[in-house]
Design a protein around this nucleic acid. Structure first.
Lengths: 150, 150
DNA sequence: GAGGAATAGTTAGCACGGGTAACGAGTTAC
DNA sequence: GTAACTCGTTACCCGTGCTAACTATTCCTC
């Protein structure tokens, strides 16, 4: 009889597989929920959220944080600039770098999107116990660290 | 000054945004780690893992669990069948359904892949405390439930 | 039992978001 | 001052998700 999710998750040996599947499923689920008039995909939205938290960043820094290759980030930034959510300006001293920052419209979009997804999450959280919510909150920085650089 | 990850994650208001970003980054990170000779993408591998845990399933059941539309699962299964990792057979009593099961090669691939990713995870876990690992294990079923059906 | 509604799977076609390779502009080191 | 490196970009390809439309089968109703 093949092991169930609960069984393998109790061991380190199965943690990777289970975590991987859970992360992928949840990612797909999250991608569905978006601000109704928001035509920005979830990946591109993550760039805005990153700029919101960290302020002005270069294209390379954004790519490194999102664990994406530079060309992918160039495209994401271009799309955001076309829509007026970010501004690009050259670095003062290093002419190779391009600094990206949120516009007012971009900031508004981040907040609206966060509100929207919070509503969805709130409906989900009602089905969870306080312990479950605390467990999620505790796991968050660890998930973040797992995804970070070696 | 914009809030940092730690700041917003302490409140329910920011949990959704932070969780979303963490999940997306980790998903990309996990997608990179794969068995060297494994030309199967992470999404298709998840199908094999699902069959390994649950045994024979119909295309529709697979699609529902992975939170994917039926056509996407049809394609994934076809690709796996071409490579000899799964077998398809008609349902005994319901001629509409197609049942998918792992072949021996598919089972081997699941185990090899799991071993490979476990190695990667083990190297990560060394950087974490026992509490962190426990937190991850506790959060796993909750992440799973968040992605589940309404 | 015959016919229409519902369900399972597939096909076709599209969009988006990753990747690599190759290149130009700018900087740094020698 | 030139060679090597870094950053960003362009061009192109591929994987994987979606919707719409179709077929085959089953279920329901009369």
């Amino acid at each position: 009889m093949p092991p169930t999710t609960q069984h393998v998750a109790r061991t380190d040996a199965g943690l990777a597989s289970e975590l991987r599947v859970a992360v992928m499923r949840l990612r797909r689920r999250l991608a569905i929920e978006r601000e109704p008039g928001n035509d920005i995909g979830i990946g591109v939205m993550a760039v805005l959220a990153c700029l919101y938290r960290r302020g002005e960043l270069s294209v390379g820094e954004l790519a490194a944080y999102e664990r994406v290759q530079p060309p992918s980030m160039t495209r994401a930034v271009r799309k955001l600039e076309e829509k007026g959510y970010v501004a690009r300006r050259p670095h003062e001293t290093d002419g190779r770098q391009v600094l990206v920052s949120l516009t007012d419209a971009g900031r508004d979009l981040v907040l609206a999107d966060r509100r929207r997804r919070d509503e969805w999450l709130a409906s989900r959280l009602r089905g969870l116990s306080a312990d479950d919510r605390a467990a999620l909150r505790a796991a968050l920085p660890i998930l973040d660290r797992l995804a970070a650089e070696d």
